[in-house]
Simulated scan of single mutants.
Amino acid sequence: MSSGVAAAKGRATAVAVPASEALPWLVSAVVVGLVLYYLIGIDQGAASLFGDSSMIHELVHDARHFLGFPCH
């Protein structure tokens, strides 16, 4: 086996992905990211979109401190 054949087998090729196929994945990733940002960073319990309970706030309490969000 020559060195040219070995080099050709290990070479990666780029695949063109049309924007129409990538857009739904990008939009989904942005929506999931914004929901996570809200749940971890913004939801305070008292002014929650999910009622007056502070359940979500308490579930992500340690993550808020780890990520540097002010909490109390």
Rank of each mutant, 00 (worst) to 15 (best):
V60S: 01
L39N: 00
T13G: 11
V17H: 07
S48F: 01
G10D: 08
S28D: 13
R11I: 00
L49N: 05
L26T: 10
T13K: 09
D62P: 02
V30F: 08
L67D: 00
V35C: 13
G45A: 04
L39K: 00
L59A: 14
F50N: 06
M55D: 11
A14T: 13
A6M: 12
S2F: 08
A22C: 03
A19I: 12
F66C: 03
V27P: 00
P18W: 05
I56F: 14
G68M: 04
V30M: 12
Q44M: 04
A8C: 02
E21C: 05
L26Q: 10
A6S: 14
V31Y: 05
S2R: 10
A6I: 01
I56W: 09
G68N: 03
F69Y: 15
V32R: 04
V30L: 09
R11Y: 03
Q44S: 13
G51V: 06
H65E: 12
H61L: 13
G4Y: 07
A47E: 15
L67V: 04
R11M: 08
Q44V: 02
L67R: 00
Q44P: 03
D52Y: 05
M55V: 15
L49R: 09
C71L: 09
A12S: 08
V27N: 02
D62N: 11
F66H: 02
S28H: 11
C71Y: 06
D52K: 13
V60T: 14
V31F: 07
A63F: 11
G33V: 01
S48V: 03
D43S: 02
S2C: 10
A46H: 13
S3H: 09
V5T: 08
P24E: 07
D43K: 01
S3T: 11
R11T: 10
Y38T: 09
T13C: 06
H61E: 13
R64S: 02
I42G: 01
H72P: 14
Y38V: 04
S54R: 12
L23T: 12
V5Y: 08
A19L: 14
V17W: 06
S2Y: 03
A7T: 02
Q44A: 09
F50G: 06
A12N: 06
V5Q: 11
Q44T: 14
H61N: 08
E21S: 12
